[in-house]
Design a protein around this nucleic acid. Structure first.
Length: 400
DNA sequence: CGAGATTCATGTGAAGTATACCTTTAGGCTTAA
DNA sequence: AAGCCTAAAGGTATACTTCACATGAATCTCGTA
């Protein structure tokens, strides 16, 4: 045992593959952002007036995951803040990711989170939403300033809670005297603005910028630049970068995916005590990412959600037949009785199943079986080899 | 045979309920003058 | 009398339930050729 642990420590104290691992991590904002010059220029010119404390147009950014939206807006945020600081301009830019559950997935929570970012405390519940807005406005009115509000993944929030909060936000300017507020919406869904309140659409979509996916060559370029900074010399076998790019390009040009692949591959190689990242580690990394992503979601889900998922897993193991809501519900009921959990109604389970669909853990489609009614046709979207692990996690968290 | 009507199993929206938590307020107790 | 603490009152957000109506194609019904 001791020797095993020694080995692990050895591989870490021995010289590392990395020179600076941080550079490959997802929250790192690089000095330059290749292949996004056009977009950055556009965003910059749209947001520039805020340096003169003029209200800028609201802005909307579209693009698939890993196409550089968040990165670009963060980059510009930093640049603007740097300048603002130098010249003492009261500019604030707040970034909120609307997808985060329990943090920013209701109107109340979004505003509350915003207030917290501005450095004030608000209770998690109990206040009227109206009052939260009032407090928000009050904070803004304390001094003359410019606020740019970045709402990442707004489509998620709107899908869950509707677009009224966007309307309220766009309207808030009319209640402000000293401060002006601009909104930058970020969305993965290209058709997002089509389905929302026209008033919001015209206000929020004053300017729109599309981020096209990176192609394989661009991905390679990005990876090379980052790899040079992040790795020591000659630690990457030939073809590794190319393979990462190719895999990520297949996933609609997701640069984040490409970087994760490279970083995790290197971590795995390092853990094995290797000095070079070779091609086979890319495959391992690919599996690991997929696994971690799914298992992590499963693990952090609330109990009732986990029970529902377990019911679906049981069903998908047993029979190859299609799974319907009714089946899931009866298995779920049995599970609840078995473990001694409270049984929720089918209405609620229906919603929970819909949420799993959104998360991509399952694929569910509403179908009509004619004479035999209407239901969701459910398919588990967890890769075969992961199902056992998923089950273990669920058992672990439910049965103890 | 084909057009409508029917039917089933559940989707889906609206309104209601329980719970946890917040602020306000009134009363009671302590304290200092 | 002023100050402070506490508990009750009154209010909200959230997760869930209840109620009621909407769906939509397979199947049934029945008039017609």
């Amino acid at each position: 045992m001791a020797t095993k642990i020694d080995k692990i420590f050895d591989s870490f104290t021995k010289e590392s593959i990395f020179k600076n691992k941080f550079i490959l991590q997802t929250n790192y904002t690089p000095e330059t952002i290749p292949h996004r010059d056009e977009q950055i220029k556009q965003i910059a010119s749209i947001l520039a007036p805020c340096l003169r404390l003029e209200k800028t147009s609201n802005l909307f950014l579209y693009g698939k995951t890993g196409s550089g939206k968040t990165l670009s807006i963060q980059y510009i945020k930093n640049q603007l803040l740097k300048r603002a600081k130098k010249r003492n301009i009261p500019l604030k830019i707040e970034y909120i990711n609307c997808k985060l559950r329990k943090i920013a997935d209701t109107e109340y929570r979004i505003i509350a989170e915003l207030i917290r970012k501005l450095g004030e405390k608000v209770p998690a519940t109990g206040l009227p939403t109206e009052q939260i807005y009032a407090k928000f406005i009050e904070i803004l009115e304390r001094e003359k300033q410019m606020l740019i509000l970045v709402l990442d993944e707004v489509d998620q929030a709107v899908h869950k809670i509707g677009d009224s909060f966007l309307y309220n936000l766009t309207r808030i300017n009319s209640e402000l005297n000293k401060t002006q507020i601009s909104i930058v919406g970020v969305s993965n869904d290209l058709r997002f603005l089509e389905n929302i309140d026209p008033r919001v659409r015209s206000s929020l979509g004053e300017e729109e910028i599309v981020f096209p996916p990176y192609n394989a060559l661009q991905l390679q370029d990005i990876l090379k630049k980052r790899a040079n900074l992040s790795f020591k010399k000659r630690r990457i076998a030939s073809g590794v970068i190319e393979k990462c790019s190719a895999l990520a390009a297949r996933e609609h040009g997701d640069a984040r995916r490409a970087l994760d692949l490279l970083r995790i591959a290197a971590e795995l190689a390092e853990r094995d005590g290797k000095k070079k990242v070779t091609l086979d580690y890319i495959d391992k990394a690919n599996h690991k990412i997929e696994r971690d992503k799914i298992l992590d979601v499963i693990e952090t889900e609330p109990k009732q959600f986990q029970l529902t998922l377990l019911a679906i897993i049981h069903l998908s193991e047993k029979k190859t037949k299609k799974i319907f809501t009714g089946d899931v519900y009866s298995v779920y009921q049995n599970l609840c009785k078995q473990i001694g959990y409270e049984v929720l109604t089918q209405r609620r389970i229906s919603d929970i199943i819909a949420e799993f669909d959104m998360l991509g853990i399952i694929n569910a489609k509403v179908i009509s079986k004619g004479r035999y009614g209407r239901t969701r046709e459910i398919k588990l979207a967890i890769p075969e080899p992961l199902i056992e692990k998923a089950k273990n996690i669920l058992d672990e968290s439910l049965f103890k």
